[in-house]
Design a protein around this nucleic acid. Structure first.
Lengths: 224, 224
DNA sequence: TTTCTGCTGTGATTTTAGTCACACTCAGTT
DNA sequence: AACTGAGTGTGACTAAAATCACAGCAGAAA
């Protein structure tokens, strides 16, 4: 959660180029309700997923049944392009956290457009760089921190993601949160209760609302 | 450490395109000896670093002085391009693990070439995708595993990296290994001793040599 | 309504890994 | 040859987090 040095401008430019080549109105919209699977581990990517509404979790399932959540993605975002560009299979499963709307750009069309339009290719290059830098930041923020610190960090990160879509609530169960911060349900429950008692968050209706960002940042920075 | 579904072919193609645009003989070679810094956290990337010889560690330094090692890179490899393409500063520091040779491609030249040669741009797009997929795999392999499992995993991963350069030894001190697997020196020392007693590894001259890959894989898979 | 089912909350206990303290080895000085 | 410093090895202790066990609650289904 360091100061974000990535220029906000590029995000806008990326959106513009995506809209130019993949205008949502020209693609059939696929709807998923909460808990529906968007793609499965080991599947081949059929196309580019342009998430126009809602949020999803991307995870792997461990042998003991736990979900290890690697990323949370909120609209607007494109996913699946890495696997299209390298012709690799998904290592992860994607499931809708809230009702989701997706525009699917077929594989061949996507690849044709990218390879023949250098502005589009450059957009994906930039997008990928930003994604990767964000992933690096998350790794730095998470590793080496006790669970309490990781939870504080996760709440800030998720708040940023969900905040931008409007609702301002974090749509995560205790178990999902545990899978996101690399802990277990019980420990996560206890810590969330602590945060609630310390008036840092509120947890009505099993969603989480952040009340005091500064305290979370302090907790997170205790360890980094 | 799952089966690697990334086509080996693309790695070769990437090398060829890099050689075509950045022939090593045309660039001045910079040499670094063990422990020398190649770039610092918070610096701006001056150019593309084409590592032609040796190995480096990329890490962040924590408040308490510990190094959290995010990546180990062995020649041949290019680094720094993400920060060039997004005009962001490094979040990490890079230090030579063995004597290193680097060809530096100046920023403007790199950006000009990438933006005006679509095969080069495509190469970087692919490279970045592969990097990102590898990073995802590492995250999946590491998270949620006890230290013993992470160590087994790290040894296999490092062996692959160093093995390809020839020596076959892993040039990591106990402290560095601890920083790589997210643990502390003492715990790492103990586990390495255990592995040595179990004849899984050998540790002459403070370098590590792997004797039994299968056992490491078993230990790693116990948890995933 | 009753009966599931899945989620939350919490206590008690155990396991894992981190902390502290100190000794030993080896390479490079002085 | 003694001195230094960095890396290693290990024991004792402590702290953090996982596991186990169970209770309560809300919404969906019968």
């Amino acid at each position: 959660m360091k100061n974000n040095s990535v220029p906000e401008l590029s995000q806008k430019e990326i959106q513009e180029v995506l809209m130019k080549y993949f205008p949502p109105e020209e693609f059939e919209s696929i709807k998923f309700s909460r808990q529906q699977v968007i793609f499965y581990e080991k599947e081949t990517a059929e196309g580019l997923y342009f998430i126009t509404k809602g949020s999803i979790k991307i995870f792997v399932r461990k042998k003991d049944g736990r979900e290890e959540i690697l990323r949370v993605v909120t609209a607007p975002a494109v996913i699946g392009y890495k696997h299209l560009l390298t012709a690799t299979k998904f290592m992860t499963t994607a499931i809708a956290l809230e009702p989701v709307e997706v525009k699917m750009v077929p594989r061949e069309m996507f690849l044709y457009l990218v390879k023949n339009n250098s502005d589009l290719m450059e957009t994906f290059l930039t997008l990928l760089c930003l994604d990767d830098i964000e992933r690096e930041r998350q790794l730095i923020d998470f590793e080496y921190k006790p669970v309490r610190g990781r939870l504080a960090d996760a709440l800030l990160r998720l708040d940023k993601l969900f905040g931008s879509t409007g609702s301002g609530f974090i749509y995560f169960s205790r178990k999902e949160m545990a899978g996101y911060i690399g802990s277990v349900r019980e420990t996560t429950t206890r810590l969330i209760s602590e945060f609630r008692q310390e008036k840092i968050i509120d947890t009505s209706n099993n969603r989480i609302k952040i009340l005091n960002r500064k305290k979370l940042l302090d907790i997170s920075n205790l360890y980094s």
